[in-house]
């Protein structure tokens, strides 16, 4: 699936909920199911600044694709990481770097949470794009 196909799938899933209570339950569920990050990746340099909770993000290249792993000590943020990983992990650096993540807006998350720096959603996204950019520069 392409990045946009995955985004459309997520938008469809979220359209089943008519309030944020349901959306949060879904995000929490994703958070709870996100596999724990191996402790070797929970390093100071993998911590994303700008989040109220601690967020770790690890990226590595596998067969020309960027694979992301992440975790947080807060569940909702973990769910958000899970969503971002589902959308971006396993794609080429170029695809990730130029991806327009419209699903954040379309599921209403931007309006609901992203205004405060607390959730760190955009900090995570920025970091993922930076990794992709770095990998695409390396491969060129």
């Amino acid at each position: 699936m392409t990045i946009n196909e995955i985004q459309d799938e997520i938008i469809d899933e979220f359209s089943l909920f008519d309030d944020w209570e349901g959306k949060y339950d879904y995000i929490i569920d994703i958070g709870k199911k996100l596999p724990p990050l191996d402790s070797q990746y929970k390093t100071e340099e993998n911590i994303i600044k700008g989040c109220q909770s601690r967020v770790w993000l690890h990226a590595e290249m596998q067969d020309d694709k960027v694979m992301f792993l992440g975790e947080s000590d807060a569940v909702i943020v973990k769910g958000l990481i899970g969503l971002l990983i589902r959308v971006l992990s396993g794609h080429s650096p170029e695809e990730i770097a130029k991806a327009d993540l419209y699903f954040i807006d379309r599921i209403g998350m931007a309006q609901h949470l992203a205004q405060t720096r607390a959730n760190g959603l955009f900090a995570m996204l920025k970091q993922m794009k930076l990794y992709a950019l770095a990998y695409s520069t390396m491969s060129n």
Partner: peptide
């Protein structure tokens, strides 16, 4: 076992403003 940030976000969804951090 529950992070203060989760508490803050969930309470806000219930219309309750607290400070976390």
């Amino acid at each position: 076992g529950i992070h203060h940030q989760d508490i803050g976000i969930m309470l806000d969804n219930d219309g309750i403003a607290v400070r976390t951090g």
